[in-house]
């Protein structure tokens, strides 16, 4: 029952780049990203679709890459933590996490940031409570969330400011 079915051809935009890929149908998106593309910033912290460490964006919305087949991303755009900012130029949300000490061991951090960016981009104006509820799909064991909430609120402001700046240019 586990004989390898033939691989499927996939066309996925990964972090802005057009990728032509092949994977068997039973490949989870998170495994395609981690094993085939070497994008190991997306982590696996559970097997029940609860912890959110594998959160990526699919067409701009946060989804759990452990509950999505790679083939379901065919024809769509996937953004991972590696695609939102770099060491040279952190995304405002990444910068806010650093500034607020919103990470310790770092394992949940990529998923947390991907969830936070979606929350800011698609959520209502955020309050402390709204951020806490909006992060319901992400578990952190280190920080007690205090600084994460602070960072998301700060990141929200920074993202708005960055948008304004861009709008002005």
């Amino acid at each position: 029952m586990d004989e390898e079915r033939s691989s499927m051809k996939l066309h996925i935009t990964v972090n802005g780049a057009d990728r032509r890929l092949e994977a068997p149908p039973n490949t989870l998106l998170v495994d395609l990203l981690r094993r085939q593309l070497g994008l190991t910033g997306t982590h696996v912290g559970c097997d029940t679709c609860q912890c959110g460490a594998c959160t990526v964006h699919l067409d701009g919305r946060a989804v759990k890459a452990c509950a999505l087949l790679a083939v379901q991303a065919d024809g769509h755009a996937v953004t991972t933590i590696e695609g939102v900012g770099s060491a040279q130029q952190l995304h405002p949300m990444q910068e806010a996490f650093r500034d607020c000490h919103a990470l310790q061991c770092g394992f949940c951090t990529p998923g947390m940031i991907m969830a936070a960016i979606d929350l800011v981009e698609h959520g209502v104006p955020l309050s402390n409570r709204a951020v806490r509820e909006g992060l319901e799909g992400n578990i952190c064991r280190c920080t007690g969330y205090h600084n994460i909430v602070k960072a998301v609120l700060q990141g929200q402001k920074a993202m708005a400011a960055a948008d304004d700046k861009q709008g002005a240019v």
Binding site: T80, E82, G85, A87, R98, H101, G106, T109, P110
Partner: peptide, 19 residues
């Protein structure tokens, strides 16, 4: 002091065993 290890964790370039 802001943590110097953070940049790799924030950008997904840290190296955990499974990576």
């Amino acid at each position: 002091v802001k943590r110097r290890e953070d940049v790799r964790f924030l950008t997904g370039t840290a190296t955990y065993t499974d990576d």
